Simulated assay, not measured.
Amino acid sequence: MFSKSNLLATLVSGISMFVLGYVFWGMLGESLMEGHTLTNVMKEEPDFIHLFLGCLIGAFAFSTLYGKWARGHHSAKEGAEFGLWIGVFVGLGMGLIWFATSTMMDLTGHLMDAVINIIYYTIIGVIVAMIYRATSAKNP
């Protein structure tokens, strides 16, 4: 769990999650979601310390699960596949649950958010897989 591969993947993917989150939801998503937000729950200014800490914790969980799931087969394809399934779980599965139980966004907003989540986690999966591949023990 605390291997060199996992810790390095956690650090790099945590930073990537922070930056890509800003790009996808802060820049691109804001204009996409305009008109689909029913209840604005966003803070005027984010708490960046807790935001980054959340990204690191999420990255550690993601990287740890990937390490167990991949079973030593690290490639961009494996990482993308793992990330895609996490994106489907978070974006589509949890998004539809949020749609059914809250008034944050309309269905279109949640579906657009699901697509963003799938792309986001697919990219994170590739990053994690490439770090695992670069840092894992080589077979003789």
Rank of each mutant, 00 (worst) to 15 (best):
F62N: 04
I116L: 14
F60P: 00
A114N: 04
I127L: 09
I119R: 05
G58A: 06
L92A: 09
G91F: 07
A61S: 13
G87I: 06
L53W: 10
S102T: 15
A61R: 07
F60N: 02
A80L: 05
I119P: 06
L92E: 08
I57Q: 01
K77Q: 10
L53D: 07
F52I: 09
G93H: 06
G91H: 01
C55G: 08
Y121I: 00
F52S: 02
I124E: 00
V128L: 00
V128I: 11
H74Y: 15
F52H: 11
A59V: 01
W85F: 13
H73D: 14
G54I: 02
W69V: 09
I127Q: 06
F52A: 14
L53V: 15
D113M: 11
L107A: 11
H74A: 09
E78R: 15
I86S: 06
A114I: 11
V88M: 12
D47C: 12
G58S: 13
I86Q: 08
G93M: 08
G67M: 00
V126K: 09
T108W: 00
H74V: 06
I49K: 14
M105Y: 12
G93V: 02
H110W: 14
G109R: 01
V88T: 03
A114F: 05
D113E: 12
R71G: 12
A76V: 10
L92V: 11
E81N: 14
I119V: 15
